[in-house]
Design a protein around this nucleic acid. Structure first.
Lengths: 277, 277
DNA sequence: AAAAAAATTTCCGTTTATCGGAAAACAAAG
DNA sequence: CTTTGTTTTCCGATAAACGGAAATTTTTTT
């Protein structure tokens, strides 16, 4: 990622956003006390004056903050309010918290909420249970290819068929990194659709299992997923049945609460014209 | 140092970031199911083709997502990971959660964590106690001028003197919106510095009070603040003394835990040169 | 404390990505 | 099927970004 001057990949279009995003990524990938301009210059391969001008612009608009004491650059707190907006997507936000809380309390394990974003599943919330062996696989904002991980698999399994096919074909190489070949994944998808929830037993990280349930629109498309992660011995037999049941119910409840916003048809018909400021 | 940066509006510099930020703001300000391109065009006042190109770029880099079903534009989930980076600022993140949790459990009221960002205090986390009368004044990402609100006031009070003076002068008009004149604020600042915590008794929202304590660097500058909000009757007399004590202690603990990162001097001297890729 | 080295900020001629109007392609409504 | 509205592509003109280098400031070394 911080390659020297590979930036010129395709100069065709949208260069402005590309550069800005690159700079923010660089700063975000650095530690808790930020970077100096030189560090950004070095890692981005951009010219000094370009980086300077870019940072000035980013600061002016709150995307980047500069520590007044050290002059170092940090990711701006405007991201927080934008994230709040991003998470209100599909209207799940007001209810998701309570769902996670309930699941977490009932299972004592770690529970996650993920959204689909492009070809990825992104972890947007997490609640840590008090079972002593912690399984923190996903941090906030982490993303994985659709199909990799319990929540991610349940998202993939409930995409429209053409979309699913496209994703299976497109992302083969990325998935290979995780040791998932396409044939195996297809089998898991069928299994998941069949049962209505996904089970990931130690394939991704040995000794750890995951359970995922999709949050569905009325047309059957998944937009999000709830999942539980635990050491494998805690997701077997009786308990597995129990938890998968609970998880599915919770996912359905959640989908139901937000269904007015979730439903794509409704949204499409809803008119937004002539909104004045 | 001459002119050329003030309220000239647009047209000056860095127009690229300005436009991108504007578009994201517009989408963020819309409801949970996003906007169509036309809506963005209308609200931004930009040309159709410009918006189109801009959105394409923003999507390519994950700043904006497009719902595959409805084709509407939503704030991208990349913001989530950027926000995670933004909140790791000063190294407080790993400890802040526990602090909020403890305060919330002990008081049953609503507790907040805020950071300073430019001339504002921004709410970055919140925990809601179970006292039946809720006082949810700040949402995640909300920002207010420094000095307005308990946490914000404690942040302002513990800025270096020259900075404080500059802020008092610069932001007078913005603060006026909240009914805070400069003289009154100066008095409150003195009081806050004196006691080591801020008390906001119903001036901002009548019937509601707040209590704030700064999280200080070793040089005495505040970078963040913990605060408690409750109906005024719950922040008086005996209980006020108790809670302010607890709040200050928690703020100090938090600062202590993160002190290695917090301390500006240390950061400045720490060499980052030649970071290899 | 002065000198040296590094880093930041400003300047300015050149280049090129952006702009925006208009029309083509597409989708929805009547 | 027609009409209306929305998204996408095209293209020449121009304003905005680029980047080398100099001026300034900050940091490190002596």
């Amino acid at each position: 990622m911080p390659d020297s001057k590979e930036t010129t990949g395709r100069k065709g279009d949208h260069q402005n956003v590309a550069r800005a995003a690159q700079v923010i990524d660089i700063i975000a990938a650095s530690g808790p006390n930020g970077l100096r301009m030189t560090d950004v210059t070095e890692r981005s391969g951009l010219g000094g004056s370009t980086v300077h001008r870019l940072l000035a612009g980013l600061i002016e608009h709150g995307l980047i903050d500069q520590d007044p004491e050290t002059n170092r650059y940090l990711v701006g707190l405007k991201m927080v309010s934008w994230t709040a907006a991003a998470l209100s997507r599909y209207g799940l936000a007001p209810y998701a918290d309570a769902s996670l809380e309930r699941l977490c309390a009932a299972t004592s394990d770690t529970v996650y909420l993920s959204y689909r974003s492009g070809n990825d599943a992104v972890c947007v919330d997490r609640r840590e249970g008090n079972f002593p062996i912690k399984t923190l696989t996903l941090a906030l904002g982490d993303h994985r290819p659709l199909g990799i991980g319990a929540g991610s698999l349940s998202l993939l399994a409930f995409q429209p068929e053409d979309d699913r096919r496209r994703l299976l074909a497109e992302d083969a190489v990325r998935r290979a990194t995780y040791g998932f070949d396409t044939a195996y994944l297809e089998e898991k998808i069928a299994e998941t659709r069949d049962r209505g929830f996904s089970l990931n037993d130690g394939k991704l990280i040995s000794g750890m299992s995951g359970l995922g349930a999709p949050i569905l629109r009325r047309d059957g498309t998944a937009v999000a997923a709830l999942s539980i992660a635990a050491i494998s011995s805690r997701l077997e037999g009786e308990r597995l049945t129990e938890l998968s049941q609970m998880l599915r119910e919770e996912a359905q409840t959640l989908a139901g609460r937000a269904s007015d916003v979730l439903d794509a048809e409704l949204v499409k018909r809803h008119s937004f014209r002539k909104v004045q400021t």
